[in-house]
Structures are given as C-alpha cells and as structure tokens.
C-alpha cells in the first residue's frame, strides 16, 4: 500500500489532466441536476434528501479530483456551516411559524393567513419549503463529513 502511494505521488497519478478537465466540466451540471431534483420532487422521483446528496457529491468530487483547497475555494468552511444551520432552521422555522399564526406545528395550511393562496396550495408550497431546508442541511453535512473524515480533522490536504 505504501509503495503504491509513493508511486502515485511520484508520477502524480492523482493529478491527471483528463480527470481535472472532466470534473471541471461536470461539476456545474451536477449542481444544476441536484437543484432540479430538489425542486422537481413534487412531480418526479426526488426531493430534499436525494438532491442534497447530489449537491454534496459535486463538492466532494471537486475535493477528490483536485485537492481540498480547491473545494474550499468554491465553498468555504464558514459558508458550509451557515448553510447547514440555515437548512435545519428553515425546517423548524416553517413549523414554528405555522404554530405562531394559529395552526398546529408543521400544519402548512395555517400559513394561508399570511398570504392567501388557499390552504391546499399552501400545503404543497410548505412541502417545497421544507424540502429546500432538508436539501441544504443534507448537502452541508455530507460535505462536512467528507472533509473531516478524509483529512482526519486537520482540514488541510485530504486524500
């Protein structure tokens, strides 16, 4: 194993031009597809969890093909933490607002008092809000897990 690692380091097997170019071309499309999966969860297979994992995988792919510095350039640790907290906060915040305006906790039809769209439409839209929150949280946590585990907590080089 160690010999293989040294060989890879000498010949720079991980720094192939083909892989780097392909990843650079692919990452925007992967992110677009992740957003599509989150937003289109009402009508096709998809939703917050799946789309969040795809979005997180795009950043993990950057960190795998280049190095961890490159993925920090695209999404820094601070932004990642903010997005993760925001995702969980959106979910719980939507539920709390429902309770504050007079309905039950997480009963989205109560939000009809704020903007009158109709209670059924609000239930559909409330599911969308919640999915966005779940997607953000899952993306952030997946990227966080990869960063921490692959660099054993040092957050400098990674694999």
């Amino acid at each position: 194993m160690k010999q293989l690692q040294e060989k890879a380091k000498q010949r720079q097997l991980g720094d192939s031009l083909i892989i780097k170019t392909a990843v650079r071309l692919m990452v925007p499309f992967i992110q677009l597809f992740g957003l599509y999966v989150i937003v289109h969860g009402h009508y096709s297979p998809g939703g917050g969890f799946q789309g969040g994992v795809i979005l997180g995988a795009s950043f993990i792919l950057l960190a795998l093909a280049f190095d961890m510095k490159t993925s920090f350039k695209h999404m820094s640790e601070k932004v990642n933490a903010i997005l993760g907290n925001l995702g969980a906060a959106i979910f719980i915040g939507v539920g709390l607002i429902c309770a504050l305006v007079g309905g039950l906790f997480l009963d989205y039809s109560a939000l009809n008092i704020i903007i009158p769209l109709g209670p059924v439409e609000w239930r559909s839209f409330g599911i969308f809000l919640v999915e966005v929150g779940v997607g953000l949280a899952v993306m952030s946590i997946m990227v966080l897990l990869y960063w921490n585990i692959s660099s054993s907590g040092k957050m400098d080089e990674g694999l």
Partner: peptide, 24 residues
C-alpha cells in the same frame, strides 16, 4: 426507508470518525 438510509449514512460517518479517533 428514505429517512433510514440518510440516518444510516450519518451513523456510518460518526462511526468512521470514532474509528479514526481510536486509531489515533
């Protein structure tokens, strides 16, 4: 099972972190 899969991923992540700490 959709929720169980995601919980499984996070359990695996925490377990790997603890294993790394044990190895350290």
């Amino acid at each position: 099972m959709l929720t169980a899969i995601v919980v499984g991923v996070s359990v695996t992540g925490v377990a790997l972190a603890v294993l790394q700490r044990i190895y350290r």
